[in-house]
Design a protein around this nucleic acid. Sequence first.
DNA 1: TTGTATGCGTTATCAT
DNA 2: ATGATAACGCATACAA
Lengths: 313, 313
Amino acid sequence: MTNIHDIAKLSGYSAATVSRVINQRGYVSDKAREKIKSIIDQMDYVPNDVARDLSRVKTYNIGVVLPYTEHAYFNQMLDGIMSAAFKHGYRVLILLSNYEQDKELEFLEQLRRRAFDALIFTSHGLPLTKISKYLRYGQIVCCQDPGEVQIPAAYTQRYETYVEAFKWVKERGYSRIGLMQNRDYHVSATSEKTIAAYSAVFSKMPDPQMIVNEVMTYQDGYQAGKYYHQLKQQPDFVFCNSDDIATGFRQFYLDQKLSAPDFMGQEHQLPSQLLNFSTIDHQILKVGHAAMELAISGESKIVRIPSRFINRA
Amino acid sequence: MTNIHDIAKLSGYSAATVSRVINQRGYVSDKAREKIKSIIDQMDYVPNDVARDLSRVKTYNIGVVLPYTEHAYFNQMLDGIMSAAFKHGYRVLILLSNYEQDKELEFLEQLRRRAFDALIFTSHGLPLTKISKYLRYGQIVCCQDPGEVQIPAAYTQRYETYVEAFKWVKERGYSRIGLMQNRDYHVSATSEKTIAAYSAVFSKMPDPQMIVNEVMTYQDGYQAGKYYHQLKQQPDFVFCNSDDIATGFRQFYLDQKLSAPDFMGQEHQLPSQLLNFSTIDHQILKVGHAAMELAISGESKIVRIPSRFINRA
DNA sequence: TTGTATGCGTTATCAT
DNA sequence: ATGATAACGCATACAA
């Protein structure tokens, strides 16, 4: 591997001058520049990025923690993240967690070891208090309401929209509402908001029997349909976790030649458009973008982005 | 930042011994190990990954070039890639190209500058001959049939399955076949295979009027539907680019209260299951996995993976 | 305008 | 078993 010293030697100048030529900074005579450039071309030389990173104490890499990629939510997030990253010349490292705390910890340790300049948690299994302890080692951004915890965040303001959606459900006369959730509301801020909005609108907590957790895919939606169907008191409306999941739910009933309860989706995906049901656009693209901006700038502020109920009554 | 020399000084041992303790190699007395470990804990020390990378001449990062992320094809690819990467303790850097040759060149340059250990092109705008020139700077894997070009590759064997699909179409009596393609067959190996299979089955080249290029999203599928509809001689069957795209195509006709020509999809996505139309499973997950294995191992072989026609007549 | 010297933090070789 | 020292390759403050 030919390095900057080789170029220095061959050109008759010092490594410092070669460095100046490469980075176009400081004073360099035309003569020196010419000579050095010709040697660089001749030797087919390029600087080594790792050495550069070490010297600059900066990698231009940002780690992005995702539970999984199959989910539309995380795809949109990634799109927003990537567009902001590209804008500033940063690269994105994908870090799959599957919500495993061990893995999340490992990623935090990688941040500590300076493997990347900052870390974005699009979602997390670890408690935020634990995550925030690593803020001293580098910038960290999370994508949910951090509540009391002091940590930079970009997230969708879901509560108001959930209230709007549940009011719409209530006005249409539904009373036994099924709820599908990604994770239990004890560990998920999103689920917690859902429950809170439900309670505010219906003036009571949802029936635990009506809640299905760990719903993440089309298949899970299908299974949830099965579950709801075998209940003595079936729901008359189901609040699904995503549009994809909603179609899984619907499919179960179709396969049984039954008519499904009414339902709505989330994430504003293709299926709600295709099958014309209501949904919520959580504007995840914007959230991703904002998160990356925070990661790069190092600011420790909070960015809230409103979501949008899409009424397809 | 506390470094290995600080630990050496404080523990009374040398940096070399500290390094041995950290990496658990070579001989270290229990006494030294104890002492050094306690100092490490005390100082909250962790090694710097960048310095380590520089010294080892290895980053454990692999760059993955994707034209865009909205596409199911690339999502599946990424899943396969990630699972293989994780298995071997490698990280994945996402590099969006949008098929722009400038960007692809920039990624090749980054490989040359050792920003990552290897580069995977899930698809490419640059000619393979050009890409292959960079093989001297590091491992590169592409995900299409490289033909004559000497370059490691993992790809789906599409031709046979396309033939099977077109035979099925022909047997059902269709004769005016619409074809949607991602990119023109002059630049896309996939499109070229499609055309070749068509020609083999129907004993003639497809009518250029029946081909729509640059079809990548649901919206594009919709527009293609519009295009086909205004033709004097409309197709009686349309061979779509993906299941998502097929639904866009279908939706145009639904919106116009017209009945759509028969059609099939590709990529084995949710819509073909939902709406029960035929499709092709290109086994992209496996391709991604194989590509990453090649990237890591540095082998320069070619891995072919058969695709699968899913008949939903 | 250019060069010297030093730092960035780790690994690895080779004595001892 | 341990240490000194040389890579790894580049950037930069400061001197000249």
